[in-house]
Nucleic acid binder design. Structure first.
Lengths: 137, 137
DNA sequence: CTTGACCCTGTAGAATGGTACAGGGATTAT
DNA sequence: ATAATCCCTGTACCATTCTACAGGGTCAAG
């Protein structure tokens, strides 16, 4: 007796009911079973998955990318090399994001220090923090 | 004699001409001076700014957030305390993003290790990597 | 001095990621 | 048992962030 209604999962995951139905429509979430009156019956794991989706979105992943991320699991026993390559690409992507965020953070710290130093500001450390470099697809 | 046309800055920043005009319309970019025939005349620094915008976008910042980030600079000499507080909030935000990205990376690494081991995968390490936790505003 | 590549404004359309009803059943709380 | 609350489908609409013309002027190379 563990099935949750859409309202319950929505609340637990901190999302809207409409959002979840939207994810289902777009294929990000697979259709759950229904009860006799047509209500969606979610297993508790659905909450974990939705929380993951939420987090990943906040990190700047698109729904498409999130789908790919989740799909890595289901392709497991098929083409292991492919999955690995895909995962490694994501990892590289993530590493670049982290590096850039670190640069941005450093720039902001510099800014706050100057601020407390009351020193003059001849150039903006924020703007020059991220040199134009490799693409993030 | 350093002014650039919109096409030149677009190319150098790796953006489309239309995109730049769009940024101007939305206020992200201030209107540059014009020449006699109404062409936009950009100073070379515009390229730096646009590159920053591009990078920041790739990091998941919205145009609104990017505007705020850039605005930190101009408010410099005015209300120092405010800027500092704002910058520090951004820093916290960035730190959380980095933490979450690090978790995601760890989860993916775990996946790739299992993958190369050719071991069976009974549960998805990706899905469980990010516990439902603090919000990223 | 013409041809092609640029530039201008203005408006329209697209992709992404939702959000909000309307209209109508199902469940639950009092 | 009846009102409040939840669920269903379907469609329409919203913000964000571009992208693509249309219609017309400008500039630079051959």
């Amino acid at each position: 007796m563990k099935a949750l209604t859409i309202g319950k999962v929505a609340k637990q995951a901190g999302l809207g009911v409409e959002t979840i139905r939207f994810y289902e429509r777009t294929g990000l979430l697979k259709e759950p079973p229904r009860n006799d009156s047509g209500y969606r019956q979610y297993p508790p794991e659905a909450v974990v998955k939705l929380c993951f989706i939420k987090k990943a979105k906040q990190l700047g992943f698109s729904l498409k990318e999130i789908e790919e991320l989740i799909a890595l699991r289901h392709k497991q026993d098929a083409t292991c090399g492919d999955i690995k390559a895909q995962a490694e690409e994501k990892i590289k992507n993530i590493e670049e994001r982290i590096r850039d965020l670190a640069k941005m953070k450093a720039a902001l710290l510099k800014l706050t220090r100057r601020c407390s130093d009351n020193g003059p500001v001849y150039e903006c450390p924020i703007l020059t923090a991220l040199e134009p470099s490799g693409e993030v697809p």
